[in-house]
Structures are given as structure tokens and as C-alpha cells.
Write a protein that binds this DNA or RNA. Structure first.
Lengths: 191, 191
DNA sequence: TTACGTTACGAACGATCGTTTGCTATTTTC
DNA sequence: GAAAATAGCAAACGATCGTTCGTAACGTAA
């Protein structure tokens, strides 16, 4: 295959990332391999890695892509809601829907990455941690605005519910998980 | 190294499993490799795998060991408590202590395995799922005994809190996570 | 039109993966 | 005491890992 134009190369880059996010959602960011990605994309390994320089940078770009996707799916639809309890309730609804019917075949990418890298120092872990910490601050800020007691505890609880729900959906294949998730979150918010 | 007696071989077997559980708690059951295990144990790869037959059987034995350890650390100390709310509160205390100060360097093994294998069919996933389902039934039974509304929802919520707490402890290195975990569980039980 | 930059390839690198084979040394069994 | 069973090793298997190299083909800018 000959060289493509720069515009086409950018599309190739994107397509590789799409595939990377899909594969990593089930096999993990570490289980993601250049060779498999190359086969899937009908490219050479060198052609794939050439777009990123190293596997770690590929992992980081895939992670950023997944974060963007997540924000677009969960945060953007509710960002316009009134800050405080109304927005928290909207988040509870949207978040649990997202977990119950996830766009990635392996469930929530960020939850999986959290557990995969929680004990492995490096830029991937740092990035996951940063994204999660930001989200916890967003939740706590709205909880404070809503006048709820101990906003950090509220944020903590909402996040644990979401992570556990991912497991209930994927591992236990519990069809009621999304409903239970929303119910649990609403209980936290309205007690 | 010459052959050892059967009693010594059993000890070797156990020592390999100990190491396997430790390594897998941070690197995952898939990141666990025979070669690394052999180096750690100062054995040959063949000597290691000879005890288990295949990597998958090693994974399953390590998983069973981790399940036993977990039960000894969390369930056994509270099993004698009065079934119902008293035991659930004891579980909340013991479980959150366990999560905050885990014997494995990589945090709760079962939580990690849940997320690692939740989308990968096979005996490992089946075993994790079975163990978790059993635990959920135990929790729900006590919740029912306690007269709590929707016992399955209670079990679901307690489990999500535990899983999320593991992430807060490991990834966020949140020193208040264990306390928040216990508080969240008690709120679920006494509302 | 020429020169340069870049995409992507094929091939190879050393390392490591899980597993198998052949063997030795020892324990266990008869 | 002879024979069978077995723990563990050394070496090698083919496969795959991430990465590097040289090169061809093409787009882009001078």
C-alpha cells in the first residue's frame, strides 16, 4: 500500500484509535497489542505504531479518546441542567443509562482502566487518576450547591455505585443493574 | 536441583500459589507469567508449570486461593454474629477495614479479577462470577432477615460500594476511603 | 520540475510468552 | 532391594511481543 495524503492519514489515525478503544474495552489497555491492531486494520505493525511512536503513547491516546467519548455520552447531555440537585439527578439518570447500555463492547472503559492501572505507576495511571479526580470534583461541587451534607462523601458514593454497576452489568449480566444503579444514586441524593 | 519429597512438593506448590496471588493482585491474572514466577521462585519454568499443568489451571488455583484468603479475612470473623442487621453491620466494619488495609499489595484480588475477566468467557470468569453471586446471596439473605426493603438492592449497593472503595484506595490513594466506605454501607443499612 | 517530507510497508531485531521433551535424582511403593 | 512414580531442570519449540531499519511511493512546497 502506497502512502496516503495527510488528510487520509489523519483518518487512518482516527480509525486506529477507534479500534484500539474497542479492543481495550474488553482486553484492557495492556492486552491491546500492535500486532492484533495491525491485523484488524489490515496494516503492517510498523504502519500502526508509526502513528503513535510507542505503545504507551497509543494507550494514552486511546485513553483520551475514551474520556472524550464518555464526556460526550454522560456529561454533555446534562451539562446544561441547573447546577445542584437537578443536575445531579440528571447525572444519575444519564450515567446509569450509559452503564446499562455502553457503547463499548467491554463496558465502561474508564472503570476498566481504573482497576487495570490502579497499582501500576506511569503516565497512564496518572491520566486516569486525573480524569477521575476531576469528575469527583464536579460531583462534589454540585452536591455542595445542592446543600447536601458532606459533598465529598456524596461524590464518593455516586462513583462507587457507578463502578460496581459496571461489574454487575458485565460480569453478572444483571438486567436490573441499570435500574438498581439509578435507584441507589437517587437514594444517596435524596436522603 | 534434585527431586523433593511429596511433602516438600506440596509446600513448593503452596509457595508458588502465594507468590502468584501477590503478583496477580497488581498485574492481573493475565499479567501473571510463568517465567516471572519461575524467576521469583528461583525455579525453572517447567518446574513451575509442572505443578499446575497449564497457565489457566494456575490462574484458577490462584483465584481459589484468593477466595479462601478473602473469606478468612472478611467472612470468618463475622460469621458468628447474629444473622440479620447485626451481622450486616459487622460485615460493613470488617469489609471496609479489609479494603483499607488489604493483605495483597494490589488491593482486593477478587475485585480486580471481576473487572479483568468480566468480558472474557472461560472458566476463570465463571469462577469469579460464581463466588460473587454466592456472596451477594449471603448479603441479601441477611438483609431479608433484617427486614430491610428489597434485599437484593441492599446486596447490590453494598457490593458496589466495596468495589468502588478499592479504586479509591488504590488509584486515588484516598486515606479516608475506608471510613467513607463504612459510612456509606451503614447509611444503606440504616435508612 | 525539483527537492523534501511523510505514509506505509516488509523484514528483521532481541525478548518473552506458554508449553513440550528428555533427563536426572530422589522418594515411594511393592 | 528392585521397580515404579515423580519433582525439578535444561533446553528447545513455535508464536508473539514492541520496536527499529531501510525503502518505496506519493503528497506537498519551493
Amino acid at each position: 500500500m502506497p502512502r496516503r495524503s495527510q488528510a487520509e492519514a489523519a483518518r487512518t489515525h482516527d480509525a486506529i484509535l477507534d479500534r484500539a478503544v474497542t479492543v481495550a474495552s474488553t482486553h484492557g489497555l495492556e492486552g491491546l497489542t500492535i500486532g492484533r491492531l495491525a491485523t484488524d486494520m489490515r496494516m503492517s505493525k510498523a504502519g500502526v505504531i508509526g502513528h503513535f511512536g510507542s505503545k504507551e503513547r497509543l494507550q494514552l491516546e486511546a485513553l483520551d479518546r475514551a474520556i472524550d467519548d464518555w464526556r460526550a455520552a454522560v456529561w454533555d447531555p446534562v451539562a446544561h441542567e441547573e447546577p445542584g440537585l437537578p443536575r445531579l439527578l440528571a447525572i444519575a439518570r444519564r450515567w446509569s443509562e450509559f452503564l446499562g447500555d455502553c457503547p463499548f463492547p467491554g463496558g465502561c472503559f474508564l472503570t476498566a482502566a481504573s482497576f487495570e492501572f490502579d497499582d501500576r505507576p506511569g503516565p497512564v495511571r496518572d491520566r486516569v487518576r486525573e480524569a477521575l479526580a476531576l469528575w469527583l470534583r464536579v460531583l462534589a461541587a454540585d452536591a455542595r450547591r445542592a446543600g447536601l451534607d458532606d459533598p465529598d462523601q456524596i461524590a464518593f458514593e455516586l462513583n462507587t455505585i457507578a463502578m460496581g454497576t459496571n461489574s454487575a452489568v458485565r460480569l453478572q449480566e444483571d438486567p436490573t443493574a441499570a435500574r438498581r444503579c439509578r435507584r441507589a444514586m437517587e437514594r444517596v441524593l435524596t436522603r
